[in-house]
Every structure is written in structure tokens, then in C-alpha cells.
Design a protein around this nucleic acid. Structure first.
Length: 377
DNA sequence: TAGGCCATCTGGTCCT
DNA sequence: AGGACCAGATGGCCTA
């Protein structure tokens, strides 16, 4: 059946971005083509049934479709149109709800929207992962968390999630069963590899040795939950969560809120913004070639900095990637896994569990100081 | 150009 | 009777 466009293209386009239509509006926007098509459909159907039955033989007189009055047909048409409008409105409501869901699962992006099915899958995984974390009552393993998040997702979405969590997506390959397998070194110390002192503990800030490997000191995990519970619920109507906010993501980072308006989109970050990232099983920080594309070819950290002075200087190149504008690992990032926004704004709040770095020119020393302050040291 | 995603229309079913 | 819900069909748009 040929479906005639219901509304003009502009209206159709608008509807894709969550515009809601009242029933009256929908009925009012019915155009003549739509009405004509309905008439034609009815006419065609009547003629088909009049001429032949299912065997192609002429129909008996009694099988002929009952002829309704024009008034009855009009009522049927009007009811059909109203039903269409209601159905459209219902689907818009469904899509609005889905859009709300998109905003509270990891990796929200206005321009690179997850599909409906992927949104639902990710939401389910996210709930599951958080439930597992709560029931475990201890700091979750990042790999397990990400693996749970990515279970059953398509490879592109898996890449997106892994990218959001600053992991090399190539380490999270989705097999044919939808399970996510990790090909790297799945250890916690690879996720938070404490960098050697020369690399990431600037002069005067380190309490560890300069040449030894300092054991990673977990930051206050529960602070993240406190922070989370301090933050507004998506359903609370708080101005901190008016639909324009990132969810209080994420995995064991401090749940902070950051507006999306000025966010750097994931794809932009991947292609233009990210220069360094943390790779499981590969030490701490790796430099990413400016020409690299996600997933990146990574080079050992030792190639990144030549001197302690360099560590303490503000870097012109963005050091850290934040896919959605939300500080995924904000708050008390270890120096090997700091997070900052790349929008050029200058903000580096060192306050407790809600720290995030939003400057692209924050020295490692500053980040280290913030981190240490977050640790209460 | 094929495939994925989406919005819309449509008829059927269930419920009030 | 009419509304809500559902699933199939269809065509448009976008991307690899």
C-alpha cells in the first residue's frame, strides 16, 4: 500500500526530535492526500471483493461487501484518522520516554543517538551492572562493569561505550553470541595502573618513591555513591536534571553532573580531541597520534614526556578524553586516569567527590593536587 | 545500492 | 462504541 506523507517534511523532521503533538493538532494536520488515499483504498477493496473471490472466481452475490451509507463511511474515516492521530501521539510519547532513557544511560549524545533497541539493551545492562555493584558492596571491577554494559550490544555501540569509559574498544570484542570478551589484561591494576613516580607524581606532590611502582590507593569508593545520592534524581525535576544533564554516571567515578549543551561529541573527540588515553594492560598513559582514529594506535607513555618539567606544564594538546561532556571518571582521578572536558573552559574544581576537570590546560601537577585532595591526603 | 533505522498507517485484539 | 495496545507493511532517510 502506498503511504502518502502525513505531514510536510518540516513537520516530519521536527517530530524526530521529540516534538509532541496533541490529538487536535494531529487531526488538524490531516491533509487532503491522506483523505483521498483512504477513499481510494476503500474503493479498491470494494471492487476487488466485488469481482472475484480468493480462488479468482466471480463472487456470489451474497459475498458482496455490505454497502454502507456515505455517513457511515465518513464516520469510519474520521475514526480511522483519529485513531491514526492517537497512535502517532502514543508513539511520540513512547519516543519521548525513550529519549529520556537515552539521557540517563552512559554515552548520551544528541547527535549520535543510540538506536531504540540499543538504548534499551544498554539501559538493561546498566541497571544490571549497577545492581551487581550494589549487591557486591565493594568497588566493582571496571572490566566486568564494561563487559556487563556491553553485553548484547552491537559492535559500534560497544565501541561507543568503551570509548566513553576510555578503554580501547578493540579489547572489548563482541562475539557472535553478543558476549563481550576482553583481549587485554583484565586486572584492576591495569585499569588503574599506578604510574611510576617519574611519570605522574610531580615534584613535591608525591608521597611515594620516584622510581618504584607505587601501589594504587583506591579512593573512597562510597564517596561516589554519596555523591550520586546527593545528586538529583532524573525524576525529581531538579534543575540539575532537567533533561539537559548527563546522567550521574558512571562506573566508580564520582557521579557528577555536567551540562550537555557545550559537550564535545564523542565522534569529534575520537577523531580530533583525544590524544592520550588509558589502556588496560598497557601501563598507564599512552600517547595517541593526532591522526589516529578510534580505536587508537597507542604508543608507550615513555614517549610522551621527556622531563619532569614537561609533566608540570600545561599541555596544549588535550590530555584527556571525555566523550559526552560528562566527567566519567571525574572527581578523584588517579593521575593516570584523569578526566577533563575539552571545551576549553577553565575549571578544575578540587572539591571532594565532585571534582571534574574541564580545562584543556591543566598541568599534571594541578590534577595530581586535586586528586590528592580528593583522597583526603 | 543494500541494509539499518525510523515514522506512520492500518487492522486486529482486548478492555472499559 | 471507542480507546489502548500491538504488530505488520510501507516508504523515507542515512550510511557504509
Amino acid at each position: 500500500m502506498l503511504t502518502v506523507p502525513f505531514e510536510d517534511p518540516d513537520m516530519m523532521r521536527e517530530s524526530q526530535f521529540g516534538a509532541t503533538f496533541t490529538r487536535q493538532e494531529d487531526v488538524r494536520t490531516l491533509n487532503s492526500a491522506d483523505l483521498k488515499e483512504t477513499e481510494d483504498d476503500n474503493t479498491d477493496r470494494e471492487e476487488e471483493e466485488r469481482e472475484e473471490d480468493e480462488n479468482g472466481l466471480p463472487k456470489k452475490k451474497g459475498a458482496r461487501k455490505k454497502k454502507f451509507s456515505d455517513g457511515h463511511n465518513d464516520r469510519v474515516k474520521v475514526r480511522r484518522q483519529e485513531a491514526n492521530a492517537r497512535e502517532r501521539s502514543r508513539m511520540h510519547g513512547l519516543n519521548d520516554a525513550l529519549e529520556s532513557l537515552r539521557k540517563v544511560v552512559p554515552c548520551y549524545s544528541k547527535t549520535q543517538k543510540l538506536s531504540k533497541i540499543e538504548t534499551l539493551r544498554l539501559a538493561k545492562n546498566y541497571i544490571w551492572a549497577l545492581s551487581e555493584t550494589l549487591s557486591a558492596g565493594k568497588r566493582p571491577d571496571l572490566l566486568a562493569f564494561v563487559q556487563t554494559l556491553c553485553k548484547g550490544l552491537s559492535q559500534p555501540t560497544t565501541n561507543l561505550v568503551a570509548g566513553c569509559l576510555q578503554l580501547n574498544a578493540r579489547n572489548f570484542l563482541t562475539d557472535h553470541n553478543g558476549d563481550v570478551s576482553f583481549s587485554g589484561r583484565p586486572q584492576y591494576d591495569s585499569l588503574y595502573p599506578y604510574p611510576n613516580a617519574e611519570m605522574a607524581t610531580p615534584t613535591g606532590l608525591s608521597s611515594g618513591t620516584r622510581d618504584g611502582v607505587k601501589p594504587f590507593r583506591p579512593y573512597n569508593y562510597y564517596a561516589s555513591y554519596e555523591s550520586y545520592y546527593d545528586s538529583a534524581s532524573p525524576e525529581s525535576g531538579s534543575p540539575h536534571f532537567d533533561g539537559q544533564m548527563s546522567p550521574p554516571i558512571n562506573y566508580n567515578g564520582i557521579f557528577s553532573l555536567k551540562k550537555h549543551e557545550d559537550q564535545v561529541e564523542y565522534s569529534k573527540n575520537c577523531h580530533y580531541g583525544m590524544r592520550y588515553c588509558n589502556v588496560p594492560g598497557r601501563g598507564s598513559m599512552y600517547r595517541v597520534s593526532p591522526d589516529s582514529h578510534f580505536p587508537y594506535d597507542l604508543h608507550p607513555r615513555s614517549q610522551s614526556f621527556q622531563s619532569q618539567d614537561e609533566l608540570n606544564t600545561a599541555h596544549d594538546v588535550p590530555l584527556f578524553h571525555l566523550s559526552t561532556g560528562t566527567a566519567l571518571f571525574s572527581g578523584t582521578p588517579p593521575p593516570s586516569l584523569p578526566v577533563m572536558r575539552l571545551d576549553g573552559s577553565e575549571q578544575s574544581d578540587c572539591g571532594g567527590g565532585k571534582t571534574w576537570f574541564s580545562s584543556n590546560k591543566v598541568s599534571l601537577g594541578t590534577r595530581m593536587a586535586c586528586w590528592r585532595q580528593g583522597l583526603g591526603r
